[in-house]
């Protein structure tokens, strides 16, 4: 490998990503090349200056973190259930109710004396359900 080829891959060499023979060749070249040697120095410094491991999070704060995540998970679960209910259950319920009312109100040869009372109670319940829905 030439100086240019090795210079281009000094980062890979530093990261241990060159295979055995390429890595050995690069090591030999770096030992004898001032330009590559100083580039390696800068690359190392770059990693240390910008990425040196930040202080690990306090392990005691893990439980607080777990609690915050679980609070969001349960809020998320509730809201997705509500969304599901609003999107599918409410229309389905409405449709069923409409069907029921139609069956009850539909003109029939023999009117059932009990029907109007039952319908009145049912529609009162239904409207309160819909008002409560988001």
């Amino acid at each position: 490998m030439t100086h240019e080829q090795i210079h281009e891959r000094l980062g890979e060499w530093l990261d241990g990503e060159l295979d055995g023979s390429a890595s050995a060749a690069a090591s030999r070249h770096i030992d004898s090349c001032a330009a590559c040697k100083s580039e390696v120095f800068r690359l190392r410094r770059l990693g240390e200056a910008l990425f040196a491991a930040p202080a690990a999070a306090d392990p005691r704060s893990t439980e607080a973190f777990v609690a915050r995540v679980m609070a969001r998970v349960s809020a998320d679960t509730v809201s997705s259930w509500e969304k599901f209910a609003a999107r599918f259950l409410a229309p389905a319920f409405g449709l069923a109710l409409a069907g029921l009312l139609f069956t009850i109100y539909a003109p029939r040869p023999e009117a059932d004396a009990d029907a109007p009372l039952g319908v009145a109670a049912l529609s009162a319940d239904a409207s309160s359900v819909f008002e409560a829905a988001p």
Binding site: P54, A57, V66, M70, V73, S74
Partner: peptide, 20 residues
């Protein structure tokens, strides 16, 4: 949810460090 909380507990340090 208890099982998920345990997963959060186990993996929180790495995920938090990655995000930070």
């Amino acid at each position: 949810d208890g099982a998920f909380a345990e997963l959060v507990r186990r993996h929180a340090p790495r995920v938090r460090a990655l995000c930070a």
